[in-house]
Amino acid sequence: MAYRAEPADALRIEPLDDFTLVFHRRSGLTHLVTAPAPEILAALQEGPLTRDALLARLAERYDLADGSTAALDARLGELVAVGLIEAA
């Protein structure tokens, strides 16, 4: 199963401080997110990835505080729930 993010032109992403604002044009909703959500969105906007491929990509780019699949599954679940990514 691969995950796909809303395309770049569907979102307005504005980093503020520890939090990042994500305005979702389609729903009109504003989301206030912290790491690793902006990093996940950025990685998936380059193209769909499976969970394991995404984890490998993130580990390659960032020093992950919690590199477990369980932690990533939880974050992916949250982003799917609010409609910023979808499981395809």
């Binding site: 307005r12 503020l16 401080d17 520890d18 939090f19 305005f23 044009r25 009109g28 206030l32």
Partner: peptide, 25 residues
């Protein structure tokens, strides 16, 4: 007060933030 806390407080203090859509954002 940091920007993200200000953002949350001001959106709560706004009656038309959602209605304005991206202009409000």
């Amino acid at each position: 007060v940091g920007p993200s806390e200000v953002f949350v407080r001001l959106t709560q203090a706004s009656t038309n933030y959602v209605a304005l859509g991206e202009r409000g954002f």
